[in-house]
Design a protein around this nucleic acid. Structure first.
Lengths: 116, 116
DNA sequence: TCAAGATATGAATAACTGTTCATATATTAA
DNA sequence: TTAATATATGAACAGTTATTCATATCTTGA
């Protein structure tokens, strides 16, 4: 393999890319964030939570699946900092962690030309 | 399992969530898009391509790894509609598909408070 | 304290995914 | 056409992950 030496622009871009590549740990964090929202079951939970805070029972009602599966996914979403929870008596209410999540979802849907 | 019946707001949110849940096929498309950018090796390729179009050789140079691995990842990114390619003589030049990709990356970094 | 409901979690299994290795295809120069 | 370079790809293996099942924890009301 050899460089396409007649393409100086590519060479320059590569050099800048190397110089500006975020450290591995930062790349990992961004990847983790995206991974959290890259599974249909978790994504449905986020779509559901856009309509407001909900306890686990209602999330299960909204997205389908078993209580156990939803609970496992909620744990991952919470660990990724995408949702937050608060105890409310006997139930635990989940909600989106902040407005960035909604913005990313909407931008992605715009990219895909979805009607979100 | 029983509903937390004293929380009418949650009940309402659940009903709206069900009524507005995108069809499964649309959820899948969004998930696919996120999955494409949820692996560190693919993410590094995108970070690299922010600095301009590059052929495979230079991408390998910028992100590390083997030519085969990078080529496989480029195929996935292209299938997801995140990068595009054009033949340029003996090499094939890759670039980001559109500005939505950059916007999503920047928004996510803002969420994580990265210095992208 | 006891019972019942709501949520969380550990283990196990099945499905998926990233990398490597070897090889194939495509383009250019001679 | 042949040689050389650039890129793509199929198969296989290893590591990861989503779900299920059973059970544990936590909270409230009696």
């Amino acid at each position: 393999m050899r460089s396409c030496d007649h393409e100086a622009e590519h060479e320059l871009a590569a050099k800048r890319a190397m110089a500006n590549m975020p450290p591995a740990e930062e790349v990992s964090r961004v990847a983790e964030m995206f991974k959290a929202v890259s599974e249909p079951s978790r994504l449905k939970i986020l779509f559901a939570l856009r309509h407001g805070e909900m306890c686990v029972f209602h999330i299960v009602e909204a997205v389908g699946g078993t209580q156990s599966a939803v609970s496992h996914q909620l744990r991952l979403l919470k660990a990724a900092g995408i949702v937050k929870s608060r105890r409310d008596g006997q139930t635990i209410a989940y909600s989106l962690a902040d407005e960035h999540v909604v913005a990313v979802l909407e931008l992605t849907c715009a990219h895909l030309k979805c009607n979100l």
